[in-house]
Design a protein around this nucleic acid. Structure first.
Lengths: 210, 210
DNA sequence: TGCGCCCACTGCAAAGTTGCAGTGTGTGTA
DNA sequence: TACACACACTGCAACTTTGCAGTGGGCGCA
């Protein structure tokens, strides 16, 4: 059993430079997801026990369940969504530009950039989910749940007398996020989330205006 | 910052197979000693701060002082000596063979085999200590302290009406341990502690009988 | 001499991990 | 069917690490 913890330094200047505690928590979550992916890819979901994952990741089984509610969640990397971040707060209160589309794009970008687990992990999770119906189901349920939260967020921004229903805006947000993710991943992670979301919106517009 | 924790499985069958907690504690102690050795070898003892060591090892400075009383102790790898192990208990109560010399050898062997930090680390510690008088002093003080404990151990075994003073037996024990360690290390760690202690005793005997 | 700074080291409370002893469910087997 | 067993998952207490706010000593510098 040999465990490697990658503790990356937060380089940006204005960010508060995550403490050791926070960095270790991230590293452990990622280690668990990665271990799960490795084992599930090799042996299949049902042949892999939580205990095996934990041995691979070098933590106790109890700790596993401090990070994920179920084994399936570890495959999907489901983890509390940062719906309380500065970016969402800004969006809810009408920022950053005041233009709805632009601000939706900014939000999508922040979702993808601040994703609690990296892009590649999400890609692997989706790959595995495609093969295991149970995972897909759980993933969809998870999406559904968050759509509700997104709707609430949008409701806050638009108020009651909005031109659109918050549900349709929420769905759009989710769709944009997914599409942008796919484009970004297809590019091998090149470029910024910002660029990709813009491209997606442009594509979408040209599709719709024809 | 990138940290590798090696969690070795205890393979022997009768041993209780150290739990995860215990293995992590060992791994961390060793990581701290190794980090200290790397940095001190490169920059010198006084140019290395505890904080730097901890960054290298991926733990907080507070944790460092949970493991070592002082910075110097980390270089030397000074750590609670397993003077309460099964082997010492057996020795104290007249085992394992009943023959004093044989049992001393067994004890030396157990010291070296169960050493809380590996052979190579001890070698590096001694190397560094040779260059830093302060370390050497601390090391000697530490030896002195343990000689007392060894004497007490031997006192238990021999009782009051012994043919030898416990001090001289204690010194012999320490000397044998050191000499065996050197021989073992010179052999690059080849062979067992048992074999080396026997060889040392044989050499010693031939020296003395001439 | 006095002042400021760095650094070793400590005490304590909060956060996190681990061990353990469960419960419940599915599955293979007599 | 009944039993055993493996495994997901939970509750809780014990233990460990971490953050933080110190203290005190040494050292450069005005």
């Amino acid at each position: 059993m040999c465990v490697k913890l990658h503790l990356v330094q937060n380089s940006s200047v204005d960010e508060p430079a995550l403490g050791l505690r926070e960095r270790k928590k991230r590293a452990r979550r990622e280690a668990l997801i990665d271990a799960t992916h490795r084992l599930v890819a090799e042996h299949g979901l049902d042949a892999v026990t939580v205990e095996a994952i934990c041995e691979e990741a070098g933590v106790s089984a109890r700790t596993f369940f401090n990070y994920f509610e179920t084994k399936d969640d570890a495959v999907l990397g489901h983890t509390p969504w940062p719906l309380d971040s500065a970016a969402t707060e800004e969006f809810a209160t009408g920022g950053p530009t005041g233009n709805l589309l632009a601000d939706l794009q900014a939000l999508v970008s922040s979702f993808l950039t601040d994703a609690p687990i990296g892009r590649q992990r999400v890609a692997r999770a989706l790959e595995l989910a495609a093969k295991e119906p149970r995972l897909l189901a759980r993933h969809l349920a998870w999406m559904e749940q968050h759509k509700g939260q997104l709707s609430a967020l949008i409701e806050r921004r638009l108020g009651d007398d909005a031109p659109y229903s918050s549900e349709i805006v929420g769905s759009t947000l989710l769709f944009l996020t997914h599409a942008t993710f796919l484009r970004w991943d297809a590019a091998g992670g090149a470029g910024t989330a910002d660029e990709h979301v813009s491209a997606v919106v442009a594509d979408l517009r040209s599709i719709l205006t024809d």
